[in-house]
Design a protein around this nucleic acid. Sequence first.
DNA 1: ATGGATTGTCATCTA
DNA 2: GCTAGATGACAATCC
Length: 589
Amino acid sequence: MMEIELPKMHPSQQDMDLIDILWRQDVDLGAGREVFDFSYRQKEVELRLQREKEEEKRQQRQQEQEKALLAQLQLDEETGEFVPRSAPLTQDSVTSAQITQNGAFAEHDGDAMSFDECMQLLAETFPLDEPAESAPPCLDASVPPSTDLMMPPDIPAFTQNPLLPGSLDQAWMELLSLPELQQCLNMQMQESLDMDGLMKPSAETQDPNYSQYLPGMDHLSLVQTEVCPPEYINTYNGSFNTMASPNLSQMSLNVPDVGAEFRPEEFNELFYPEMEVKVNSDPLASDGGNMVSQLAEISSDPPVNPMDLHSFSPGSFSSGKPEPMAEFPDSDSGLSLDSSPHMSSPGKSLNGDGSFGFSDSDSEEMDNSPEGMESDYTEIFPLVYLNDGAQGSLSEKPLADQQEMKAKNPKIEPAEASGHSKPPFTKDKQKKRSEARLSRDEQRAKSLQIPFTVDKIINLPVDDFNEMMSKHQLNEAQLALVRDIRRRGKNKVAAQNCRKRKMENIVGLEYELDSLKEEKERLTKEKSERSSSLREMKQQLSTLYQEVFGMLRDEHGKPFSPSEYSLQHTADGTVFLVPRLKKTLVKNN
DNA sequence: ATGGATTGTCATCTA
DNA sequence: GCTAGATGACAATCC
């Protein structure tokens, strides 16, 4: 594999941290191979080390490419964006024995045995050595795994998909493009607008309609243009344009299916080191899903924290119309993750006690029990904002405004269609949900200024977790978020383990099925061979009988008639020539 | 456009 | 009663 040939590198501490995170992620996701082959695990450790080095190399390349791309950008004086200087780069048959015998020999005698009984005795007493010797190959066949069955001859080589970039810039691109982050930013800006509208109603300096087609991250562009320091402008636009760059295709989330490696037909791959290529790529792939979020966690010093936005001067924003909040098709059906549906609920955010951020259902839960509180953290976000300084402007916000806001609530797509940052967001749409999810939790944690890492929240033992929580004074929203993050994180891992076990069970059962099929085949073949042997011995006995009978002569030298006499023998081996009609007489004697 | 695969999440049960 | 884990079910998303 190409990656293996890459020169070794000396990773930075940050890279090492990332690798550690990826490593842990992989453990969480569970490769599962080691369950079946311990030696494989050892080999995988070596492979993993190699992979880590390769990953670092890739990250460095990504950074270089970003720099190169940034160098190709120039600042648009009007929009504050970086625009590319040039065109963007391209990219049984059991054969039953037919025993023939003379029907004339069909009478039974207690001591003497008929021909049939002789045949039967032969079949039972003779060891059938010859056929048995032919059988051994199949007798042992079931012992080793049926590799023929288990080993598909045409296992496709796993192509190494480009993984997520390792650079912090790109991690931030991912973060900044998160719908919920955008929503948080939106809400921040909304707060600013609302405040501005109340405090400086005449400060409307922009086209009121402009905000209609600038939901989501477009605010950022606006903010950057109007109020951001140049370094912020550079940070954002650099990031955005980089995201729009062809590099993005490299950071696209073409993550190979992790589950595919456990397809039953590929189970035997686990035992074959030549499948290194596949092995080599899978863990990376499985890690890739969370890479961005982990990067985001690492990047503890983001260019712009959403909380920072409210420090921007609100005077530059239109206050005429409330900024429509981008309503994202959030997949969350969960207790506390539904943000967008509640966003438009008029009045729900008017709780004077500052808990206006809770949804209807959330509010009910809060009314009943704070413990059961499942808050909408994205909506709670303004609460934190207000706590930081602004006072209750939203509570004075007219209902009509919010309803109007709801009516005008556009999707994010129109915002993308507006031209601003469209490529990044279009790309974001294709992001894997898994990445967005963890990032969202992390982003929520950051938004609520939760002083723990998501990793700690999820993985700390209960005691440590409670101790950690007790050391910080968290409000209800923060507590609820932390609990939800912990619950979701643990359940996510549990689900992954559950699915892994399920796949392993399926693989094991298929392996067992193959073994049983093989054994059945072996037994069938053995039965056929023994039947054939029995038939052959009966044939030999018949020939011998006829030969012996044919040599017998009476006192006149004439042969005995087979219809009148038969040969019978006793258990002690004595052979008698018995007249067929006198068999009972012989028996009595 | 559609269906299968994957993944996150919730609800529920159990230890 | 609380917590963690397991798992079925559902939905969103990706391919």
